[in-house]
Amino acid sequence: MHDYSKVLPQATPETQPYWDGLKEGKLMLQRNKQTGRAYFPPRPFDPRDPFAEVEWFEASGKGRLLSYVISHRPPPGFEAPFAIAVVETDEGIKMMTNIIDCPQTPEALQLDMRLELAPTKVNDEITLPTWRPAKEG
């Protein structure tokens, strides 16, 4: 779908476990140890309570399609049309993504449809958290 001539992410120490997890096909998120509530993007504290202890955990990799646009004006490295989407994971965090293995049409992209994590490896450093329609629930 992409040739990745675009600007790619680079981890910081705070986000390294997130990007390392994706390399292994896992979605690593963080949560408040007391409340159990997840937050995103990764940082060493919970923005709802910065004094609480937090921990990394492996998320389900399941979610639903919250919203999107289908861009017909591709920036470098993209082929139009392509959807820029927001997925809400079952842990309740929202993340921007691209939806792969799916026609990039309003008919195929129904709001609230179930999605599953389908990471796209770009190079040895970066695997992007792309999502696709869920095969089951």
Partner: peptide, 8 residues
């Protein structure tokens, strides 16, 4: 760049 830009 890490959480939005790469989506295009």
């Amino acid at each position: 760049a890490q959480f939005e830009g790469w989506t295009g």
